[in-house]
Simulated scan of single mutants.
Amino acid sequence: MRFGFIGSYGTPAQQVALARACEDNGWDGFFTWDGISLDEPGFDAHPTYDPFALLAAVAATTERITLGAMVFALPRHRPWELAQRVLTVDSLSGGRLVLPVGVGVPSDQAFTSVPGQATALRDRAHLLDDVLGWLERSWSGESFDYDGELLHTGPFRFPAPPVHGRVPVWPVGVWDAQRPPRRSLDRALRWDGIVPQVRGDSPEDAEAGPEQIRELVSWIAEQRGPDAGPFDVVFQGRLDDDPATAAQQAREVADAGATWWMESWWDPTTTTPERLLERAQQGPPAL
């Protein structure tokens, strides 16, 4: 299992410094996030920054760590502009970019305050699939048209493919062992990994626990079959300050089958850039 760190708060300069601290202290990945104007108590007081601009700066100042955002809200991105930004960060980083993706949060005013934006969950889900399909076509190096459910474009061509031919995609998938929501889960199975969520009212409430990860990993194995290739399962949590306790937390999640631990601190009333840097400098536990 690898360990990523989310730069949830801080100025661009603080987040670049945080990413360097992650690389220097043994973390395997640095992830920012993708929001514009969140109409939520606490979150609306924190400035947000363009994730691709931040990741470009991080790519230019790091050499090893995986880069991404938790998560990219693809339905509100113009796919042709998204494709160009993905190629830019992928090239700068030497192929270290991954794309955790989702439908976006309905409290983002970039959805609700813009006439014509898709706001219904069903429409955002259709757009997510369309943008992913469009993005994949852009990696071919060939000229293409696109005719999706909600997205239709004439010819485009991006002659330079990603460094490794494509960029790994990890869609968000909602897990419910009793009633698996097939649309979001099937979307993840078509790609390279999954960011599991359960139903909840806050980022922490929506985090899957180790037992839910175990159930999901077993279900994925049944669906993909014994000859399927690698597939990432991303766990979001918070490591204890005590190294022994943190190692126990991580072992439990690794034993459940997760391939990434994502260190996730989101409480806007208690999480500060200074606290994030302090935590990053402690490094991940040894397994």
Rank of each mutant, 00 (worst) to 15 (best):
A120N: 06
L151V: 08
G257A: 03
A221E: 15
F5E: 02
R199W: 09
D241P: 13
P79Y: 10
W261E: 02
Q223D: 14
P51L: 02
A13C: 00
Y49V: 05
L239P: 10
R187F: 14
L127M: 10
V114M: 08
R238T: 14
D50V: 00
A221V: 04
E136M: 12
R190P: 05
G209N: 09
R96W: 03
F144G: 06
T271N: 11
G42F: 06
G29E: 03
L150T: 08
A56T: 12
V163K: 09
G104L: 09
A125N: 01
D176N: 14
Y49P: 01
P273G: 06
R85K: 10
W191F: 14
P51Y: 11
V103H: 06
A228G: 04
F111C: 08
D227R: 09
T259Q: 05
G257V: 08
A21Y: 05
L132V: 11
I213D: 01
W80C: 00
L127N: 03
W266I: 09
S93N: 11
P203S: 04
P285I: 06
A246H: 13
R214N: 07
T259C: 01
V169C: 07
E211N: 11
L54H: 09
H152S: 02
F158E: 03
L185Q: 13
G116N: 07
P115K: 07
A254C: 00
E136S: 11
I220F: 11
T112E: 09
D50W: 07
E274N: 08
G35Y: 11
E136G: 08
T271F: 13
I6E: 13
S113V: 04
G7T: 03
S264P: 04
L121C: 03
L189F: 15
T259R: 06
G94A: 04
P161V: 12
W80N: 12
V195R: 04
V233G: 05
A110Y: 10
R137C: 09
L287A: 06
L150W: 01
A244T: 10
T62F: 10
V89L: 12
D241C: 15
G237A: 11
T88W: 10
A17F: 11
V174H: 13
R78Q: 07
S138L: 14
G225P: 02
V101M: 08
V131D: 01
A73E: 15
A125R: 04
E142V: 12
G133D: 10
P115Q: 03
D232S: 03
P41K: 07
T88D: 13
A206P: 04
A21H: 01
E149K: 00
G116S: 12
